[in-house]
């Protein structure tokens, strides 16, 4: 399999995730779509790592996974805090910081 196939698949998954982030309104699903985008980036990193024959890309992918885990933890903590305070679980309505 050529590397280009993996890259095209990665681009496709990234676009699906980006469309989901834009159109969905539930913050839980938005976090899931962010996971999709991060994983697409991971796939591209590993493809290039395989293409060059260098392990640095794999280390980069590992760090991306760590950052994604942190993002998930903080995002889910925010959602739980929103739920506790009876705020609507909807990104369009949590707009107090918009000024």
């Amino acid at each position: 399999m050529g590397i280009a196939w993996f890259l095209a698949l990665s681009a496709f998954i990234f676009c699906i995730g980006a469309g989901g982030v834009i159109t969905r309104r539930n913050p839980l699903v938005i976090l899931l779509c962010l996971e999709l985008m991060l994983n697409a980036g991971n796939l591209a990193l590993l493809s290039f790592s395989r293409m060059v024959g260098n392990r640095d890309g794999q280390v980069f992918a590992l760090i991306v996974m760590v950052v994604a885990a942190c993002e998930v933890v903080v995002g889910l903590g925010l959602i739980v805090a929103m739920y506790r305070r009876r705020l609507p679980i909807d990104v369009d309505e949590v707009s107090e910081l918009r000024g």
């Binding site: 280009a4 890259l7 395989r50």
Partner: peptide
């Protein structure tokens, strides 16, 4: 993104990798 992949002109992009 597809234009970027096709037009990247990386010689190894169609190979199976190093």
């Amino acid at each position: 993104l597809c234009i970027a992949i096709v037009g990247s002109a990386l010689p190894a992009i169609d190979s199976r990798g190093a």
